[in-house]
């Protein structure tokens, strides 16, 4: 029934996953001494930058974003501004949550904030792309009957996978193995990235297998 949409979604996800892959490989070729553990922040920002750029571009090209009501330049500018503001606020929100979870408050604030940026670019950015700067709509999407389209279901799955990945990523930190990936925030950012990639794969697959049971209300 939605073969077309699922195909579009799968290819979008393939592009995004490729961008994560390139963001890991390209700097290794360009920057000397680059490694995921050693220069972790660089890797982190390159991944979140790549994901941000590619998602915005792909979703804009596909036209998933709900059509704006007005077409004036001022309105578009204010939308853009609000999106940026929400992006930043979401970074702060994630930062707070991570600190409340027990991350060091002062010592590695930069690392914590970088993790927040990564989480934002993997989760909030997608919400922005799909629903625009509308927090009410975001909250409503994450309920059992809140999904209005295939893309909403996909949003639910990827966001949940990413957050669960980051949560599970915190588990190895107290262990006394002395591995480089146990350093804060490497395991969490790796966990969230792996969770995100899993979500990218799982979402189209899940939707494909459940396409008989999925029904959406009209918008």
């Amino acid at each position: 029934m939605w073969g077309h949409e699922i195909r579009a979604m799968a290819s979008t996800h393939a592009i995004i996953a490729a961008s994560v892959f390139m963001a890991t490989v390209l700097p290794a070729a360009l920057v000397r001494g680059f490694s995921v553990y050693g220069t972790h922040l660089l890797w982190l920002y390159s991944v979140s930058g790549a994901v941000t750029a590619v998602s915005v571009a792909v979703f804009w090209l596909l036209g998933i974003t709900p059509p704006t009501k007005k077409h004036t330049v001022g309105y578009k500018l204010s939308r853009l501004f609000r999106s940026c503001l929400y992006f930043f606020l979401s970074c702060l929100f994630f930062h707070t949550v991570v600190v409340l979870y027990g991350a060091p408050m002062i010592e590695s604030a930069l690392e914590t904030f970088s993790l927040a940026v990564l989480l934002t670019s993997l989760t909030t950015l997608r919400c922005l792309c799909v629903h625009g700067p509308n927090v009410q709509a975001w909250i409503r999407v994450f309920s059992r009957h809140g999904a209005m389209s295939v893309w909403d279901t996909c949003l639910q799955i990827t966001v949940a996978c990413t957050l669960v990945g980051a949560w599970v990523g915190a588990f190895p930190i107290p262990l006394d193995w002395d591995r480089p990936w146990q350093v804060w925030p490497v395991s969490c950012s790796l966990g969230s990235t792996i969770g995100f990639l899993t979500g990218l794969v799982a979402a189209p697959a899940w939707i494909h297998y459940h396409r008989k049971h999925l029904t959406y209300k009209c918008k």
């Binding site: 979870y101 909250i139 309920s143 059992r144 009957h145 809140g146």
Partner: peptide
């Protein structure tokens, strides 16, 4: 503390999921 926090966050998320 981590577990208590996680489970406490789960409550509103679950309620929201049920609408």
């Amino acid at each position: 503390t981590f577990l208590v926090f996680s489970l406490a966050l789960y409550i509103p998320i679950r309620l929201n999921w049920d609408g």
